[in-house]
Design a binder for these strands. Structure first.
Length: 279
DNA sequence: CGATTCCCCTGATAGC
DNA sequence: TGCTATCAGGGGAATC
């Protein structure tokens, strides 16, 4: 599921691929996934490729923005021309060519290159508006995300710390993978009440959050499901998971089997020995 | 208001 | 083999 490292990796690739290009046409195959007036983007040059949290926004020459959220299974894949055969299999698509069975929206540019928005589960969206769609929270890799800010947010919340880390209205960019892994490295139980963390725990957690996000970026994100880079290659952070996705596998630190519990419809992964609920 | 559940969707998987 | 029920999950809406 695309979180900050995945979306930032996509953004960096798209700066190379489509920044400065002019949109020739848009084909919307699933109308519910596109919000706004598609005519507003036709003939417009892309003058910036931005990101905040998990949302990517293309700024257009006419000052409109095309924003995109990939949710669980969204993909943004670039092709220099039609009928391009990709070297890699595209997850959840039957062939190595696009458009595929999960292609929902297609942008074409005046140089005949294309950007495909694929999304198996149809939860993602694109939106055209005069302003970019922005999460309220502070972006994790912006300079506004400080120990001070994290402390303020944590001290004023009672909910489980993992839920807080994933709250996009507070901190933008962290999802289930990096929240679970950061808490493991910080040796904090994911269900621990936010306002029960000590100052040292918060400081340490801050470091571990930045560490796992940087690890995610270093490996071009996590491709354990649908996520691929815009060139259809895969990220590799899944080979470096700390606890996420490791239910019943030995803890990388103490060999204790990793536990997985469900709460509020989401999975919590943790090592019962390294992350005791009481400290 | 805070906490929890439902819902959107479809491929993978388990159960019979 | 083949059909059916269950599950995963970001985030907004509905409900408790």
């Amino acid at each position: 599921m695309p979180e900050l490292p995945e979306v930032e990796t996509i953004r960096e690739f798209l700066v190379e691929d489509i920044l400065g290009k002019t949109i020739k046409n848009i084909e919307i195959k699933v109308p519910k996934q596109f919000v706004g007036d598609p005519k507003k983007i036709i003939g417009q040059k892309i003058v910036a490729v931005n990101r905040k949290g998990k949302i990517i926004s293309f700024k257009l020459k006419n000052n409109y923005y095309l924003s995109c959220h990939l949710k669980l299974t969204g993909q943004l894949i670039f092709a220099k021309k039609q009928n391009l055969v990709f070297k890699n299999k595209i997850p959840f698509n039957k062939t190595k060519m696009l458009p595929g069975n999960t292609t929902r929206i297609i942008l074409s540019f005046t140089d005949n290159s294309l950007l495909y928005f694929n999304d198996l589960r149809k939860f993602g969206w694109m939106k055209v508006a005069k302003k970019p769609e922005l999460p309220k929270g502070v972006d994790v890799i912006s300079k506004d995300f400080s120990v001070r800010y994290l402390t303020d947010v944590i001290e004023s919340a009672k909910k489980p710390i993992k839920l807080l880390l994933m709250d996009q209205d507070k901190i933008a960019g962290i999802g289930n993978i990096y929240a679970n892994d950061a808490l493991f490295l910080a040796r904090i139980h994911p269900m621990k009440k936010s306002n029960s963390l000590t100052n040292n725990e918060v400081k340490n957690l801050y470091k571990k959050i930045l560490y796992v996000i940087k690890e995610g970026l270093k490996y071009n994100g996590t491709s354990d499901e649908a996520y691929v880079l815009p060139d259809a290659t895969i990220g590799k952070y899944q080979d470096h998971f700390k606890v996420y996705g490791r239910e019943k596998l030995p803890c990388i630190r103490c060999n204790t089997p990793i536990k997985r519990v469900k709460h509020s419809g989401r999975s919590y992964f943790y090592c019962p020995k390294c992350q005791p609920i009481r400290i």
